[in-house]
Design a protein around this nucleic acid. Structure first.
Lengths: 340, 340
DNA sequence: GTGAAAGCGCTAACAG
DNA sequence: CTGTTAGCGCTTTCAC
């Protein structure tokens, strides 16, 4: 039923050479008679020989695989990166193994463990938290090829690619302030994820630098899903003295806010202004289109591959910390507050 | 620098037993003295022993990996499935390898080849075309665990999960006809992808069964991207006698149509009606919300895992062909034609 | 140039 | 219950 795969031995036998010679011919190294080489290659093709990477890996130590641990592949931010990694890696004849952490530190730990057992060549991770991470620290210590994206655990000097979350948030909020807003609400998803924390910091800085006192009642915390964000937005705007503008720290929350405004009968930008962190397709489909802080997301994947390949090839260079700037993409969801 | 990993041999030595005993203790099979077992486990933990799956795989033939070959991981349809596969597989202690075909048959061929070399346990594929596929046929012949989703090459009796594209399209178009439309346009992405072909067939059937002559000038072909769909829509509606309604065969095209209508100054559902195949987040964010043909997408991943696991466990049962029905999700993008 | 031989780390008979 | 042994398929010295 299952005709066992053709092995190097079969090819060698059929070509009347030793396994060693066959291997040399097929992989093109060492000395091989052009004559024998030719014969081996022909036979291999005829037999449909397809090297066994497992055996090669056992011999050489590693499989041509790179692992990717995103927070959640459903998040368009991560699926874009997964796509880019897949494409980019193909050029280096590697394959991509994806295992999401679901933004859960414990799951992340297990996932990384199970990936390590597979003897991958390296791992690209978006850590679920910015808490110190002994597991990653240990891997780094061992010289395991590791690249961190989007978020970084405290005190880990590792190759990493992030964006300037704090500045992005500061610009966004400052833009709202310059548009005349004073009561600016924020929805973030707790301080668990480092990026959210930085974006919150940027929000506070902007307010402070303009001499506006931050009102804790205008800061809501909510899990990063559309429906939770809807609830949070509604709570925020059901107050006596509702905010005139809202800043959301990720695209799922921005979408939640959009829906909440609709159900509240609040129209943008007339009744309320909105700026979201992270661009998303829908932002240009709505009316008005949404002003967002955009990140150069397409640069992340290719750069991550470049970094991990350098490590795999044995680079011992100091860790590279690349931080991309963000850009405020002004569209139509902000205007001067009605009452102002 | 790179402290070579602890092997079973190290553990066995430290615990004063043979490798066989150590293996038995660690993997919990065969007879092991509770005493020795205990010792081995302790030592293993202390040494930080972490089995080498590559070696196990070489021995047993396969890695605990399942490959997934989607058309394009950026497509939300596929990222949802990838997510579900990842989750589901975790329960069976397997990992997911993702390599997109980019909807390109040649790339698909190469990708499958490279995945096969990795001795995966099975492959879940969304074939790029519905043309007969000798490569997949050969794998099936060999008894290679294979599950096809979304699309199926002709003449391949393989485990598969599809949706009833033809009926979904027929219902959608019939709904437009019942709403009074006669000039109903269609945008599809060529007949390369089987699903598009079936949806086109459903469109024609609906028209025919209502005695409406299909007008070839109302059928546009366009690559499946938002921007191409915009162009196609504009071309379709720039005619003398423009259609009153449009049916799009996938969500990217639906989005393109929405944008095109906006730039043409056509407002839904007043000036034009729209129904798209495949639901998408944005469909409920726009104003009006878009009426779509929805597929039970969340059922696909779990079922695919169930199927592939059955094959991996050696099931020789006849191929299962599961076809899910679609459902017309009526929202606000359809009304009676203005002129009617 | 080419072959023989020695493993990579692990598992699975098979003896004891 | 436990140790010995024989490889899985491949690469890589090391002789010839």
């Amino acid at each position: 039923m299952k005709p066992k795969a053709v092995t190097l031995k079969d090819v060698a036998a059929a070509a009347n050479v030793s396994r060693a010679t066959a291997a040399r011919a097929l992989n093109g190294y060492g000395y091989v008679g052009g004559d024998a080489a030719e014969r081996v290659r022909t036979v291999a093709r005829e037999l449909g020989y397809r090297g066994n990477r497992i055996a090669q890996a056992l011999r050489q130590g590693e499989l041509p695989l790179i692992g990717f641990v995103p927070g959640d592949i459903l998040n368009p931010f991560f699926s874009q990166i997964a796509h880019d990694l897949d494409m980019e890696l193909r050029g280096s004849r590697h394959n991509l193994l994806i295992a999401a952490s679901q933004e859960d530190p414990e799951q992340e730990r297990q996932v990384i463990d199970s990936l390590r057992a597979l003897a991958l060549r390296g791992l690209i991770i978006a850590p679920a938290t910015s808490d110190p991470n002994p597991q990653l620290a240990a891997m780094l210590e061992e010289g395991y090829p590791l690249v961190l994206i989007d978020r970084v655990p405290e005190g880990l000097d590792c190759d990493q690619i992030t964006v300037d979350n704090r500045e992005g948030a500061r610009n966004a909020v400052d833009y709202l302030i310059r548009s005349g807003h004073r009561r600016i609400a924020l929805i973030h998803d707790g301080s668990r994820i480092g990026t959210a924390r930085e974006r919150l910091a940027g929000y506070s800085e902007a307010l402070e630098s303009r001499g506006i006192a931050a009102d804790p009642a205008l800061i809501a915390e909510s899990p990063s899903t559309v429906s939770h964000a809807i609830d949070a937005t509604i709570r925020l705007f059901h107050r006596q003295d509702p905010p005139t503008a809202l800043f959301t720290v990720d695209s799922l929350m921005t979408q939640g806010a959009m829906l909440a405004f609709r159900s509240l009968g609040l129209s943008m930008p007339h009744d309320v202004s909105l700026v979201g962190f992270d661009d998303f397709d829908m932002a240009t489909f709505s009316d008005p289109q949404i002003t967002v802080v955009s990140q150069p997301i397409k640069k992340i994947g290719p750069l991550a591959v470049e970094m991990i390949m350098a490590r795999i090839q044995g680079s011992r260079a100091p860790a590279r910390h690349v931080q991309f700037p963000t850009q405020l993409t002004v569209r139509g969801s902000v205007s001067r507050p009605r009452s102002a």
